[in-house]
């Protein structure tokens, strides 16, 4: 029931968002079969110019929100997110290196940038997870969080270094990429992102109940029959796949992984069998909404959506912190 409502919201947003833009189009005409697609301007704008961006926003929003839910449960900390574990900065290093060293490389409409940023995000998580299991029995969530913080500033320095050494036009591109933007103009990058996202969804599907139990502590979960080590690995791999896919599509878009799961928990409660799918659906709708603001607020100028999510997310995060510590 609840999931149905969130699904309906996403479908409505997906259909309405492409209607908004510099040229007014009609939904009826866009879906009309009375004239061929080649002559139907409304359909062309809807399906070719605007829908890829909306679908991209949906995938990115869903991927980041789901990763946030899973990481928060795993670390038993509602403030954990892909960016706090160094996953986003890992992706940024990959992207910045690719933009600087392989600016013109491309296979089948996909440049080196998404591939490199995807690899970077997996690499960063592998390092942090490796550190967290190296010295303790089981995974240390303290090491995972602190490792993420340290890795973020260390890799941030590498990003700055590469930018400093790059020429002007490359630096401009990297700066734009790091702002996070949903300027998805075609379908091939979306199809490419669907591969890791599908793997992540398979992993996520096995997790919700185990996450409920792990949120009482790994020892308590193990005593109730959860294979904790396996669940932790599935969770981390799925979270990095979906974050990696999201970041490779749109750059590092902040706060979705914190804001969305928190709002959803306020609406549906704590049960991850509801929270996880509802967050993915709501995250998709939320980012489409943010992108709509980014596209229309200073039209015809299109803001990078990362600016919009950060201006909403930053104050929200502080409010969350304040509410928790009071």
């Amino acid at each position: 029931m609840t999931i149905g409502a969130f699904g309906a919201l996403l479908v409505v947003v997906c259909v309405l968002a492409p209607l908004v833009g510099s040229t007014r189009i009609s939904l009826v005409r866009a879906f009309s079969r009375s004239q061929p697609f080649a002559d139907n301007v409304d359909a062309q704008i809807f399906f070719i110019a605007r829908l890829p961006r909306v679908v991209g926003a949906a995938l990115v929003g869903a991927g980041l929100a789901a990763a946030g839910v899973v990481l928060q449960a795993l670390l038993r900390n509602p403030l954990a997110a892909p960016e706090t574990l160094g996953v986003s900065i890992g992706a940024s290093v990959g992207a910045v290196v690719a933009i600087t060293l392989l600016p013109d490389f491309s296979i089948g409409g996909i440049s080196a940038v998404p591939v490199a940023s995807f690899t970077g995000s997996l690499g960063a998580l592998a390092i942090v997870y490796g550190l967290s299991v190296a010295r303790s029995r089981g995974m240390s969530s303290t090491v995972l969080l602190l490792g993420g913080v340290v890795l973020t500033s260390f890799l941030g320095a590498i990003v700055s270094l590469v930018q400093y050494l790059a020429d002007f036009s490359q630096t401009f591109r990297t700066v734009r990429w790091l702002m996070g933007s949903l300027d998805v103009g075609s379908y091939p990058p979306i199809v490419a992102a669907l591969v890791p996202l599908t793997c992540a969804v398979v992993g996520y599907a096995t997790l919700p109940r185990a996450l409920d139990l792990i949120s009482l502590g790994p020892e308590a979960a193990a005593a109730r029959g959860v294979d904790v080590v396996r669940a932790e690995r599935v969770a981390l791999v799925s979270a990095s796949l979906s974050t990696g896919a999201a970041v490779s599509l749109a750059g590092p878009i902040g706060f979705i992984g914190i804001v969305v799961p928190h709002l959803v928990r306020l609406m549906v409660g704590a049960d991850h069998r509801l929270v996880l799918p509802a967050s993915a659906l709501f995250g998709a709708a939320f980012l489409i909404g943010c992108d709509l603001v980014a596209r229309t607020m200073f039209a015809p100028l299109e803001l990078p959506v990362g600016i919009v999510t950060a201006t909403i997310g930053g104050p929200f995060f502080l409010w969350l912190l304040f509410r928790r510590t009071r």
Binding site: R76, P78, L216, G217, G269, A270
Partner: peptide, 16 residues
Amino acid sequence: VVPQETHSAFDFKVQD
């Protein structure tokens, strides 16, 4: 197993 203390990171109900 009944541990010394149990904390939940999220707002579960007693029934949950």
